[in-house]
Design a binder for these strands. Structure first.
Lengths: 209, 209
DNA sequence: TTCCAACAACCGACCGTTCGGTAGGATAAT
DNA sequence: ATTATCCTACCGAACGGTCGGTTGTTGGAA
């Protein structure tokens, strides 16, 4: 039959994008290969032509795609045109975007589901995505403290104070995805603004930049 | 065969405790009724004698058990022997216990997995557990502000700053449950102490009680 | 330019296994 | 004798995965 469309690189990316959405909404065990194949417009056997197993497909969904997000954060950390407070603000806005709007950012609950069955994917996700995000932000705060821009706060505590509300907000919105009043329960813009304000207040002692 | 043991109330609670652990570690779709039955020491058909369906069993796991946890928080809020700062500190310590050590506190990722398939359970969990936790803490902060004990911070922002790191820590520890260095990556006692300290600093302006 | 082997992509049909759930009988306490 | 509890045995459906075979594309030899 026809190669269906476009170039093979885009095809693979398209399959991953579609299947990732289904994994996110129905879980790993709750999504069958037949369902995935139908969603990308092919038969199950054809999907097995592209990926050797369901596990292989899932690992590809998780690992491919977070490289770009981490690079964006690295760029912010190295940006010399920003003040330390501006850098933290811009980074937090990017973290909200990554963890609420990209599929890789919404994958943490999914990873915890399969962590016991496929331990390697938990390792890869944690070291490749989570740890690197943490390191960038923690380094940013330590830089600010060293330069005298920030108060001498505990970087570990600040790290959890920055990431905790963002990741939990992502999880809360997944959990309430089909609630009619989700945006009232969890208003992203207002929560983000308040969060950033409070963090900067802690870092710079009262000033809101 | 014999009624196996003890009184029927404890029996049901025992079944729920065991199956909840399995649901938590392998997900809803990833845990079969046969596996659950074997874990509680009976045959699948016998488990169906106690619960009419897998969904029924799961809903019981989620809904039964969070009443006690919410009552403990209510008691803290009403305790007149505590200062406002002490009350927040004691409440946060209890929140860490609930969300890290009790099974109901670790269920958020599980709920998000089944939310699309069983919408009612997401509704019940959210209104019966999440919303009530939030309301207690938010009310506590508003009380403190009204009494002049706390600075005039945004209660919504504070709510997310308090719950976010706790729920995320719970999720992170689930995700890294089988990592050999989990307690080094996520040292609960140190994170909790730092978290409480930073929250009180925001509320009382610098003082650490 | 033509031909054809090699190849990636795809399909319908099928494999053995496991799924959630049910029927009917055995056991044991009351 | 009744009732609650548990069992073995079974059902149709769905699961992950494999099979042999068909199609369009491609590139090099004639």
């Amino acid at each position: 039959m026809t190669p269906s469309s476009e170039n093979p690189q885009d095809r693979r990316a398209g399959i991953l994008a579609t299947t990732t959405e289904l994994f996110l909404s129905h879980g790993f065990a709750g999504t069958s290969m037949a369902t995935l194949a139908r969603a990308v417009g092919m038969q199950k056997a054809s999907l097995y032509h592209h990926f050797t197993s369901k596990e292989d497909l899932f690992i590809a969904c998780v690992t491919e795609g977070y490289e770009a997000t981490v690079r964006a954060l690295d760029a912010l950390r190295a940006d010399p045109t920003l003040s330390d407070a501006q850098r933290v603000r811009a980074t937090m806005e990017e973290l909200y975007r990554i963890n609420l709007e990209t599929s890789v950012g919404r994958m943490a609950p999914l990873i915890s589901e399969v962590a016991q069955v496929i331990p390697s994917v938990a390792q890869a996700f944690h070291s490749g995505f989570i740890t690197r995000q943490y390191a960038i932000v923690t380094g940013m705060i330590e830089d600010g403290i060293a330069r005298g821009s920030f108060d001498a706060v505990d970087p570990l505590g600040m790290q959890h104070l920055i990431f905790g509300p963002i990741i939990t907000l992502s999880l809360s919105r997944e959990m309430t995805a089909q609630f009619p009043d989700r945006d009232t329960l969890y208003p992203v813009a207002r929560i983000r603004a308040s969060h950033i304000d409070l963090i900067l207040r802690l870092l710079t002692g009262r000033a809101v930049t």
